[in-house]
């Protein structure tokens, strides 16, 4: 037991005199330690809000998030987050971005630089250490962003459609890359996506969320060993089931 979401309620303030918009309505789920769990659901269903609450960037109106039994009250390096827009600091080189968290944790310059270099090398980015983000492709920027988060050894990594703005080739490559760097780290990943193929390829578990306000509609365990074949019989079967649940949520 690693991450527990208990009765999360979140309403967005009313706009123009209307009623409050309920985004989460008593959402509950448990994510076991060391698993990769995808959240999938109709767009605008509150996936991102849920992730931001887990990250501590937003507060739930009711309910709580427990990490190893302790409540999350604000952002910290224990819960890392990878954003769709990479969110690298444009004025820092790749190396500077990767060492940022260590720097804020007060680690000495020589040591953190060495560690950051080690990460960049392991991530196949060694030769780009001195480049600025705008000099890199989207896929490389996102790999830098993942390195920047993983170097801090977070207990949970939240990923908000991290490959959503990449072309499908790069997207596939980064999915494989993610599995590669994640295996053996032992930390939990909560991965938001609207791409069923991606969820099925990556996850130990897929939680299908309802339209707003978000509840967990169904929970799929995927036991097929990795590396997975994207077109295998088992993958297709589970994709079909997930798509079936999702289509029931489509607004007509």
């Amino acid at each position: 037991m690693s991450l527990e979401l208990q009765g999360l309620v979140k309403n967005f303030p009313a706009q123009g005199g209307g009623a409050e918009v309920p985004v989460l309505d008593g959402l509950a789920a448990t994510v076991e330690r060391g698993r990769l769990v995808s959240l999938i659901g109709p767009s605008g269903c509150g996936k991102t809000t849920l992730l931001r609450i887990i990250a501590g960037l937003e507060q739930a109106d009711q309910g709580r998030v427990l990490l190893e039994g302790g409540a999350i009250t604000g952002p910290s390096a224990k819960v890392g987050m990878v954003f769709q827009q990479y969110a690298l600091l444009p004025w820092r080189t790749c190396l500077g971005n990767v060492e940022l968290g260590l720097e804020m944790a007060g680690q000495g310059a020589a040591m953190r630089r060495e560690r950051a270099r080690g990460y960049l090398d392991a991530f196949g980015l060694g030769e780009f250490a001195g480049r600025y983000p705008h000099q890199l492709s989207g896929g490389m920027q996102q790999r830098v962003a993942i390195a920047r988060t993983l170097i801090l050894g977070p207990q949970v990594v939240l990923m908000d459609e991290p490959f959503g703005s990449l072309d499908s080739q790069t997207r596939n490559a980064l999915q494989e890359f993610l599995l590669q760097v994640w295996s053996g780290q032992g930390d939990t990943i909560v991965f938001v996506t609207h791409n069923v193929d991606e969820a099925v390829f990556l996850s130990d578990e897929v939680l299908v969320l309802s339209a707003r306000p978000a509840r967990v509609l169904e929970r799929f365990s995927i036991t097929e060993p990795r590396p997975r074949d994207r077109t295998s019989e088992a993958s297709n079967a589970i994709r079909r089931e997930i798509l079936g649940v999702l289509s029931s949520q489509r607004e007509m």
């Binding site: 954003f83 827009q85 801090l152 939240l158």
Partner: peptide
């Protein structure tokens, strides 16, 4: 960009 602020907050 507010995302940058949020990103560094999740980095501690």
């Amino acid at each position: 960009n507010p995302v940058l602020v949020e990103a560094v907050r999740t980095l501690g």
